[in-house]
Design a protein around this nucleic acid. Structure first.
Lengths: 189, 189
DNA sequence: CCTACCGATCGGTAGG
DNA sequence: CCTACCGATCGGTAGG
């Protein structure tokens, strides 16, 4: 039982925020999870709001990195889409607390920070939109599909995963990725 | 300025819960919205929890009714799917506060009520799943698609609408419905 | 529907 | 990292 550092506390906050929500988490709850008094958290962090910022930023960074990797690794639209889908699922499974907090608690950020995070989300969405637009102009996707809307649909499917997908369940990560890929590719073709 | 009744208060609660969340709404906030003191609400309702139950139940009932209408009105799988999609969008647009609260605040219900509501949600999902399964057995949809997963995908797209669709924006209700229908039908074909 | 109020809990601070 | 504490706010009640 060694002393906690800031990272431990941000991780703990991520777990609590993901399961109980930002408003549903008190500093005392968080302290209990970590085995210290709620008030002791203030030796490590400035406050509850600062913890939310840290957790959400971690989540946003994971998704940003996943998109960058997919775009670098593949260039054909279909492969890129497959890579984006897999990457998204990987982030969701491997960093669930941060991913979920990022997806559901953005509204509780301050104005400036929320705008920043929404900007990151828009850039992430752009990776999907651009991939679809490429596919359209290369005639591998339907020409009558609106890339902006299609990107929203794909991300809607992916983001909803954290409400039902259980890695210990029937489907492996690859199986869901493949199934979603097939659905999406057919939808675009 | 006449006196409020219980329905007014449930409606007001729906609006607040939808925009600020259940935990982010105090009885005083709600009273302010309605022009009375927070404590006066207790002459009309038993408490905050009871309001959440009432709002969520309204939302669930709207979706249930929409599904029943679509199933009664159409029988061919593709038409049924189209009807289910339109119906869902109608509920989202016409009863946004209740729909959104139903979709996002279920976790704050008590155990019994939450199970009841999740049961209603499962039955609603069944309408989509059964429609897809029918389509598969009638060879109008791909035979390699899992109706259970496909239903989740369609509902993911539909439920996400309330985070971005604006009826005052570029797209009419019918245009989104048509676009989603095309995407989904292609994904299933 | 209002006034006046209760006990509990909240985010956060002082001082060690 | 703990103890002791603060002012604010919460859901809810009593009495009218």
């Amino acid at each position: 039982m060694t002393r906690l550092n800031r990272d431990d506390i941000v991780s703990g906050a991520g777990r609590r925020f993901a399961t109980h929500g930002y408003l549903g988490t008190s500093m005392r709850d968080l302290g209990d999870d970590l085995g210290i008094h709620g008030s002791s958290l203030y030796s490590h962090v400035g406050g509850k709001q600062e913890l939310l910022v840290a957790v959400v930023e971690r989540g946003a960074a994971f998704f940003e990195q996943a998109a960058a990797d997919a775009l670098e690794m593949y260039s054909a639209p279909r492969e890129r889409m497959r890579g984006l889908i897999s990457g998204h699922i990987d982030v969701l499974v491997e960093h669930r607390p941060e991913a979920r907090t990022y997806l559901t608690e953005v509204d509780f950020l301050g104005d400036g920070e929320r705008r920043r995070v929404n900007g990151m989300r828009d850039r992430y969405e752009d990776a999907f939109r651009a991939t679809i637009a490429d596919g359209v102009s290369q005639n591998v996707f339907r020409s009558d599909c609106d890339p902006r809307l299609a990107a929203i649909y794909v991300l809607s499917i992916l983001n909803a995963l954290d409400r039902w997908y259980d890695e210990e369940g029937r489907l492996t990560r690859d199986e869901v990725a493949e199934d979603i890929y097939q659905f999406v590719i057919s939808g675009l073709s």
